[in-house]
Simulated assay, not measured.
Amino acid sequence: MDVTSEQPTRRRVLRTIGTAAAFGGFGIGSSAAVQDGQEDDDVDSRFTEVYRETIESVVLVTVSRPDVGGGGGGGLGSGFVIDDQHVVTNNHVVQNAPENGVELQFRNQEWRTASVVGTDVYSDLAVLRVENMPDVAALSFVESEPAIAQNVLVLGNPLGLDASISQGIVSGVDRVLPSPVGFAIPAAIQTDAAVNPGNSGGPLVDLDGDVLGIVFAGTNQTIGFAISARLANRVVPALIEDGEYEHSYMGVGVQPVGPEIADAVGLEDATGVLVTDVVSNAPADGVLEPATRSRPASGDVIVAVDGREIPNQAQLLSFLALETSPGDTIELRIVRDGELRTAELTLEPRPPVERPQPPVGGSPDLPPAIDP
């Protein structure tokens, strides 16, 4: 579901120009600030057009947290308008914000107080409601996975610098990110566009100005990550409607199948995921058998779910996140004791987790991920 499909979106005025001319404006991975009053030849840059079409919809998010840092702390990040009432950002940017403690600054320097209407710690997404929204157009989420090497722009407020843009490419898809609460965030996008603290919650857009993802974190290693629009299209409508979103949960720990394990369990190719742990009383308890320490390759190997091949952990996580809901019964194709078998498992909502203290500056730490 496209969360802005029934809302007015910005006018599409991007001109169809030659790819070589469009991509000649900036080097890969560079940052650029676009100022009013540029020469006419600069206006022909596709990057300039996208910036001018979208930047009014991007906001600076500030959170007053008097309980942080001995009475004088807060959070800072980015967000963007998705309809005439709502702004999307990261959960870790606004987590534990006091009532009426979220302030938004728009590109025209107008300020608005926002309320948090829904948060999801597992995908690190949050939706804010704004009364009397300034007259800015909404940004739309795409519904498909971006292409590797596709040109993208990051819009937001790195280090608190307002209305900034950085440019790069999609350098990876289907990345598995550890969330601030441990559970993995699947189907994430990797980019070499510059991402810094303060960019969190801002949009990663394509050259049509549509949102491919919500910026999540940088690594200080010339790559950054964004939560995919495909996941946001499932989570955000639920946050607006119910204030929360339920993720599918199996209750297993898994690891990739390498050549040694494949040979031990009788697989011709090194594919699938080996079940290493099963959580007590979880949906997988009594259905799947984990490996033991004495026999590391003795556990079940999941090779397909509902007829879809599962070559690795990323594909299992993406399938659960994007194709299923709690209450669904899925059919697993597994290899056990050298034999191919099928098993059914009914998914449940993920159990609650303890919320961590939010980081200051709008960029989370990245602890190890927990399996689904």
Score class of each variant (00 low, 15 high):
Asp371Ser: 13
Val102Asn: 08
Leu159Thr: 08
Asp162Pro: 04
Ile214Trp: 08
Val68Pro: 02
Asp120Arg: 08
Ile302Ala: 03
Leu320His: 03
Ser318Asn: 01
Ser294Ala: 14
Gln35Ser: 09
Ser123His: 09
Thr276Leu: 08
Gly101Ser: 04
Pro186Cys: 01
Ala314Met: 12
Val278Tyr: 00
Asp208Ala: 13
Asn100His: 11
Leu139Lys: 01
Ala304Glu: 14
Phe80Ile: 08
Pro180Tyr: 05
Asp208Gly: 10
Val335Lys: 04
Pro158Ile: 00
Leu159Val: 07
Asp337Arg: 08
Gln190His: 10
Glu323Trp: 10
Leu155Met: 05
Arg52Ser: 07
Leu155Cys: 03
Phe23Glu: 14
Ala33Gln: 05
Ser45Tyr: 13
Met250Tyr: 03
Ala226His: 04
Ile55Trp: 03
Val353Trp: 04
Gln38Leu: 14
Thr346Lys: 06
Val252Lys: 03
Ala20Val: 15
Gly272Val: 01
Glu145Arg: 10
Phe319Gly: 06
Asp337Leu: 05
Gly69Thr: 07
Phe23Thr: 13
Ser298Glu: 06
Ser228Thr: 11
Pro356Arg: 08
Arg308Glu: 11
Ala304Met: 09
Phe80Lys: 06
Gln190Ser: 10
Asp328Tyr: 11
Ala343Gly: 09
Ala232Thr: 04
Ile165Asn: 11
Val136Ile: 03
Val279Ile: 10
Pro158Gln: 02
Thr9Glu: 09
Thr329Val: 09
Arg230Thr: 09
Gly172Arg: 01
Arg112Val: 07
Pro180Thr: 04
Ser164Cys: 02
Arg293Trp: 12
Glu110Met: 12
Pro237Leu: 08
Val3Glu: 04
Pro283Thr: 02
Ala21Val: 07
Val127Asn: 07
Ser325Asn: 07
Tyr245Pro: 02
Leu288Trp: 07
Gly243Ser: 05
Gln313Val: 12
Ser294Leu: 15
Phe26Pro: 05
Ala238Leu: 13
Ala147Phe: 01
Asp120Val: 08
